[in-house]
Design a protein around this nucleic acid. Structure first.
Lengths: 345, 345
DNA sequence: CTGAAAGCGCTTACAG
DNA sequence: CTGAAAGCGCTTACAG
């Protein structure tokens, strides 16, 4: 069953070297012999052995995909699957393989990375999350391993390759959208700020308000821990004040669902009493009631670009660290209305 | 930087063969030399090269993970990530690597599988979904490739290794739970029935009703296509009849969220007017309002067992096709109430 | 333009 | 109990 380069060489009446060279379309091989060899390859269904060529070229053609520790709540975000899909798609096409690395916590992940790096298994790593002071990122950097980050780099910015959305801009545009609907008391609800995108989106929100001369009100900004149980109070508190917000910018669909839940609990209708604008545009955004207006960040594209950067750096080590910005776009649904509220009670 | 077996051999004053053998704790090597070699390995931080050992043993130690085509709606289910996590965890630990395979549609996936199989890249494939008449599954079977299926096999049952929940039992227990709450008109809402677990859960539901002597009412069973837009009518129709159901069994959390949405639209309160019991117990189940009582199917464990089966079959080809059943358990939250309804309007 | 040869870093019968 | 040697299937200077 396993047909090797020798079989092809024999059938075509050339040496293995020649077969190898026509596989990579080496210019020195004549058109005629290439043709002969290709026919032999086709007839035998030859495909070069991956391991052997890895060994010979000293390129394992595999990239590690690092998921956040599974103990993080955010872990279950469909977002990650989308990025994996993008990476996988690009890798499949370039004949690279990807291996996902997970662990309960950072130690387990570090352990896995270490052995992969030492066994020469992975050429580099794509990290699916970006956080301040992340031990995994620090390790990668210190060891001089190749990695690309999805999300903005925080340390060693100049030396790290990353692909990200312009989250400040996204946050700003989202806030402007609400502003344009006439909202003034706009709250900002976000997850863990050590995750950079949460932070950036809030910055954008602040910029947009500042630009309109709306004073910043810290009490309107709540950062919630990841455990849902504990969120309820924080969310309720947001609406407890007299001049409660009429709109909320939420950093993720999952959180937005939790917010919708809180609103229902408080008897607030959406978008009648409060408008909700969220990010990531996952399946959830379409399914909840009301369907969420959400900023799509093109997660799959983030994955594709990350894989593309990875592979081009593997193959051209002299390349310098680039930064890629993937566009976002707002998808309008039914969770936002004018400030007056026209579905109100 | 790359320390090889020769370096270790040199330092320990033995031959490479001996180093190789002590790596695998071969019994014929004396305790003393093993000790010597281990010290040398530790000092140099030696880790055998993955590609080289793959090539020599003719075992690539990599397993392909096949996701459903991304054009399926179900694709975004966090469920898949959980299974990937389980697989990845087990593989990492056994020093195997996993590569995820995706594609827009089945053709793209088939293409990727073909080249992986021919390049000797993957020893086998774990298929994350099980469907009637699936071309991917058929291909795998016909080519005699090693694969394990997560979900029940439909064709070639005796020859396929699979790991699954007992979905019939799960459906039955779930229905019994509602029955025990006093519900009689229980609807069953499920996704695409060509996905076997949807079918099985419904079978369980039918069994439970039959056992209580409740006549089966086909109109209470709705199978929805995956596109949310089209679901709304089907869901609304369920509640349009005079003797509307007081409880519904839903085959997945995502669908349950859509159902909650429909109920709100119809002015039905949960669980006051209708109880909802769903499956999969994803993050969603906790976040929506009200939080969903849901059957947890241990997705991560499904992944772990699948990987374990895969690896043991790679290493022992004579093994016969086993079937593994992973347990489920019901997680009670707030979406189910007694048939009378005590939160009603 | 093409081939013989050495090499990638392991493994494993075969000798001893 | 240990080592020399051949081999896994490719690649790529080096000759010609």
């Amino acid at each position: 069953m396993p047909v090797t380069i020798k079989d092809v060489a024999a059938l075509a009446g050339v040496s293995p070297s020649t077969v190898s060279r026509t596989c990579k379309d080496h210019p020195s091989i004549s058109r005629q012999t290439k043709e002969k060899v290709r026919q032999a390859m086709a007839k035998l269904g030859y495909e070069p052995n991956f391991q052997a060529s890895s060994l010979a070229t000293q390129n394992s053609r595999t990239v590690g995909i690092i998921l956040p520790p599974s103990e993080w709540e955010a872990y279950q975000n469909p977002f990650y699957l989308e990025m994996i899909r993008g990476i996988s798609q690009y890798c499949n096409q370039k004949q690279y393989i990807n291996t996902v690395i997970t662990g309960q916590n950072e130690d387990e992940i570090l352990q896995a990375i270490k052995t992969m790096a030492r066994t020469g298994l992975a050429e580099g790593f794509i990290v699916l999350y970006s956080r301040e002071q992340d031990p995994v990122l620090d390790y990668l950097y210190e060891e001089g391993l190749l990695y690309v980050l999805i999300g903005k780099a925080c340390r060693n910015v100049n030396q790290t390759i990353y692909v990200d959305n312009d989250n400040v801009l996204a946050g700003r545009e989202a806030a402007e959208y609400l502003l344009n609907l006439g909202h003034v008391r706009i709250a900002c609800l976000s997850g863990d700020h050590s995750l950079l995108y949460n932070h950036d989106r809030k910055m954008g929100y602040m910029l947009a308000l500042a630009e309109r001369g709306i004073p910043f009100d810290g009490q309107l900004c709540v950062e919630v821990p990841s455990v849902p149980e504990e969120q309820d109070q924080a969310l309720a508190a947001l609406f407890a004040r007299e001049d409660r917000p009429t709109a909320v910018l939420v950093s993720d669909d999952i959180l937005a669902v939790a917010l919708e839940k809180a609103c229902i609990g408080l008897g607030l209708s959406i978008p009648g009493d409060v408008s909700i604008l969220s990010f990531n545009n996952s399946l959830l955004a379409r399914l909840t009631f009301p369907p969420l207006t959400s900023v799509d960040v093109n997660a799959c594209q983030l994955g594709i670009e990350a894989a593309a950067q990875m592979i081009s750096h593997v193959e051209n080590p002299e390349l310098v660290a680039t930064k890629i910005i993937v566009p976002h776009h707002l998808v309008e649904r039914e969770s936002c209305a004018g400030a007056g509220g026209f579905c109100g009670d």
